[in-house]
Simulated assay, not measured.
Amino acid sequence: MSEQTWIDALAADELPTDDVLGVAIDGHDIALYTVGGEVFATDNVCTHGHARLCDGFLDGHEIECPLHQGRFDVRDGKPTCEPASEPLRSYPVKVEGSRVLVRIG
């Protein structure tokens, strides 16, 4: 797969408003977030506790892990609160027409 390949993830109207949704994209477990009308994507598994972040709590641009309450910035995957210390992988996202596309490369 080319580094520039955009993968169709889902219809934009399937995304909850100001919340998180877990999706499988090309064999990857991805969390999609909507914050203030923008869409962001990271790995869906916490780097600290191996919990699914789509089961966590989204507060603004921060997702809180449901297992140990570590937090990450959904814009770039950086940890913002202990015990999380390793960043999440983040992915470019764009909305074209009615579809959400994610680049995984």
Rank of each mutant, 00 (worst) to 15 (best):
E3W: 12
E3C: 12
T5R: 10
D8F: 12
A9W: 02
A9Q: 02
A9P: 00
L10A: 06
A11E: 15
A11S: 15
A12K: 13
A12W: 04
P16I: 11
P16Q: 09
D18Q: 01
V20P: 00
V20A: 15
L21G: 00
L21Y: 03
L21V: 06
L21A: 12
L21N: 02
L21E: 01
G22E: 10
G22C: 12
V23C: 09
V23I: 13
A24S: 12
I25T: 01
D26W: 07
D26H: 10
D26N: 12
D26S: 11
G27E: 10
H28A: 07
H28C: 06
D29K: 08
I30S: 05
I30P: 00
I30A: 12
I30D: 05
A31R: 04
A31V: 03
A31Y: 03
Y33K: 08
T34P: 00
V35S: 05
V35T: 05
V35L: 12
E38N: 14
E38Y: 06
E38I: 05
V39T: 14
V39A: 14
V39R: 03
F40R: 08
A41W: 06
T42G: 06
T42E: 09
D43C: 12
N44R: 15
N44D: 14
V45R: 09
V45F: 09
C46S: 07
T47S: 14
T47L: 09
T47F: 07
H48P: 00
H48G: 02
H50G: 10
A51L: 09
A51K: 03
A51P: 00
R52M: 14
R52D: 10
R52T: 08
C54T: 07
C54D: 15
D55K: 07
D55S: 06
D55P: 00
G56F: 05
F57D: 11
F57G: 05
F57H: 08
L58W: 12
D59V: 15
D59F: 09
G60F: 05
E62S: 07
I63N: 03
E64H: 02
C65L: 05
P66G: 11
L67H: 13
H68E: 08
H68I: 02
Q69L: 15
Q69R: 14
Q69S: 13
R71D: 02
F72T: 00
F72S: 02
D73S: 09
D73Q: 07
V74Q: 13
V74M: 08
R75L: 04
D76Q: 06
D76E: 04
G77Y: 05
G77L: 02
K78P: 00
K78E: 13
K78M: 11
P79C: 03
C81D: 04
P83E: 00
A84R: 00
A84E: 01
S85W: 01
S85M: 03
S85A: 04
S85R: 01
S85Q: 02
E86P: 00
P87G: 07
P87E: 07
P87H: 08
S90D: 11
S90V: 06
Y91I: 10
P92V: 06
V95G: 07
V95K: 08
E96R: 13
E96D: 11
G97E: 05
G97M: 01
G97N: 03
R99V: 12
R99F: 09
L101R: 06
L101W: 11
V102F: 04
R103S: 12
R103C: 13
G105V: 15
